[in-house]
Design a protein around this nucleic acid. Sequence first.
RNA 1: GCCAGGGUGGCGAAAUUGGCAGACGCGCCAGACUUAGGAUCUGGUGGAGAAAUCCUUAGGGGUUCGAGUCCCCUCCCUGGCACCA
Length: 848
Amino acid sequence: MSERRKPYPFDEFEPKWQAIWQERQLFHVPNPGEKGFDHSKSKFYVLDMFPYPSGAGLHVGHPEGYTATDIIARYKRMRGLNVLHPMGWDAFGLPAEQYAIKSGQHPAITTRENVAKFKNQLKRIGFSYDWQREINTTDPRYYKWTQWIFLQIYNSWFNPATNKAEPISTYRGKNPDEVRLAYVADVPVNWCPELGTVLANEEVVDGKSEVGGFPVVRRPMRQWMLRITAYAERLLDELDGLDWPQGIKLLQRNWIGKSEGAEIDFKIDKSDQKIRVFTTRPDTLYGGTFLVLAPEHSLVDLIVTEEQWPAVREYRERTARKSELERVDLSKDKTGVFTGAYAINPANNKNIPIWIADYVLIGYGTGAIGGVPAHDERDLEFAKKFDLPVVIVVQPAGNEPAMGFIGEGVAVNSPMIDGLTSADAKRKITAWLEERGQGKRAINYKLRDWLFSRQRYWGEPFPIIWEDGSHRSLDESELPLVPPPLEDYKPIGTGEPPLSKAKDWIRYSEKATRETNVMPQWAGSCWYYLRFCDPNNDQRFVGEQAEHYWMGGVKPGGVDLYVGGTEHAVLHLLYARFWQKVLFDRGYVSKPEPFQRLVNQGIILGEDNQKMSKSRGNIVNPDDVIDLYGADAFRCYEMFMGPFEQMKPWSMRGVEGVSRFLARVWRLLMAENQRGDWELSAKIKETDASKPQQKITHAAIKKVTEDVESFSFNTAISQMMIFVNAFTGAEAIPLSSIRVFLILLSPFAPHIASELWETLNGKFTDARGDITQQSWPVYDQQLLAEEEVEIVLQINGKVRDRMKLPIGITNEEMKSAALVNPKIQERIAGKTVRKVIVVPQKLVNLVV
RNA sequence: GCCAGGGUGGCGAAAUUGGCAGACGCGCCAGACUUAGGAUCUGGUGGAGAAAUCCUUAGGGGUUCGAGUCCCCUCCCUGGCACCA
């Protein structure tokens, strides 16, 4: 059986051009001060979210974003910009370590192999990365600086007076360890026994580990934390200046979860203690008929009465045993126990019972709430279950029932504020409490400090040593701190990190030992966009000049365009913003935000419309597609599938269709000779383009240019198809038109465009150099203008006829033309035309 | 439950400010070339109808001369959050 004939010889010229690009280092962009740097050009930094190089290799989802950024990068270069378009590897992470546990192979080896595989796959697609800037988070030359940045965070504190991070040396308090942006705390953490490590809140989904889906339990442990909460307000406010999808901004806002209200102190009856609660509705204070503490609340021990002790102890134990999943199960009934103690409602001096219940979370607010059952769903449920009193204190505006009403209305049954709107009542009550020292305005955030340590091997070791129970940082000169080789990477299971097995490594001096935790995978990706600006600098994490140039500009964010999946909407994007702000405050970088414009790609589903997964067997491997149809067809199909940001299914038929389009492009310029070799078609001539040909060429320039700018790659390709359809079958193809077309095509299908361009240069001398060195064409509005316009004739809004009329026709002329149109006359015969609507150059609508 | 984004032919999808619904591609149908066609080229292709014509953007209502587009209600899908006081 003969091999299926290729529709065009992509298998010959695609590798050829990839080799040429590499040889000539065509996409390498020098830094300011380096040889070949062009000062006259402005910069454009276009970045992909770099991948974790897994053993499975690329799937078709990765290149979707990469193709888009590659098109933008190639387009911007042709528009005369210095384009920074780098790629690297986020290579610390669990899979390599899990593999090491199974096989004993060092994760560095696994990582090296996987990186090589990924890189080969990316190169086959023809991306125009500047490979001289390749970075790898597991390279000591890289993580030396990750550790260095950690030291800057460790040696900083957040000064509320200046609202920014400052060197710890400027802190005037007695214990700087209490305010460092990196600190150690005994905190209840998400311990995952299966993975043998602690996880960040963000890594726990529905009470299970995001990786692997293993159960996660709460357990107090000594951990490194980063004080991201200090930046909550700025992380919230400074979203405003970013060109991000509204949805992503909203996700971050919700994650930060700012709520404004008041903290109110409740005196405890027959005790000196008081309980502080947080509420967003101080106006409902009169309706507070009980208090609820989280079971873990530290005051519980002090207030519980003798006879309630057994019940309280039993309840706390039961709660502690519950998994996170059980505890947050919304469908379950409210539970709780009376402590036997009473508090005094400051508004009306009434004694109200104090309960503990697990629907109150220790981690939010003060870990205690005032129960206002009439105006809070949860409190109402609790009050009903335990038969606690309910007092209505807010009257809704409409005829909604006041019982259970949680919106804003007018205060009632509240002597001090009766008749006030909720907003006014809040202000008045808060002011009153403040005067009496029983409360104050308060703001709470859902955002928690970032649990920054992991009990793993394959991560950045902390540049920290311990001596006599206290920690201090390594000197900068001791970086990078490289992890020791291990025989056995297995977690110990107790929560002791694997590094604790390396006894020699741990011993720093007679008295001092090394920290054995490692940083989470997020660490490396928090600043990689900075390193790309100056990846080989061994004096600084990024050279000042390079940082200033590539991250510069008038907008708050340094990277001009950042493309990746929505899965990083809160985690990576929030962490990176946080690090950037610390570095900014400390004067190391020039921008407060890392990423100016963010675009999310949609997920690519399998042909069966299901998420691609190994178990479903619907994974598409880019290599297979490229073998069959070539890299250009692969790239163009990824862009032609549908709107970039939308979820969409893969279709091999679709790839075939796009491949046919490229074959038509090929045959537009190339013809097969007697021997069966391809040669430049005799139809390509240095003739002037006809009017329609000019029009279609300029329509293509306009549409492709606008669509590339707006990420509408699918319609850009449609327009190029229209061009090819129009020129297919033409007797002569004007060289000038086809040159323009090839330039438009080149960001999408760079190999075929390069090959055809070179072939043209072999015969014609009107242009010089590679297609990548050409400048982007500009369209001429004059050539797009029609001589005639088609006017739509409607009666009562329904299309009845169309007619061609000369351009520039007046509304009055359109109206008369419509009225004498035979079809229209026929239809309006015997009726009165009540109204005529004329849309200039477009439509006439008669109302009868 | 709350928030966000969606729902347009057999399929992927187009459609400035409200102004010709279905561009482009897939699939399908017909024709041409051909020993051959799973190649290529040409034409057709939302539905109903012999036709005039009517119907059609998840469903219902509204605003408007005119609605895929704006407003209200309902249903469905996808993603996120989820006892956050």
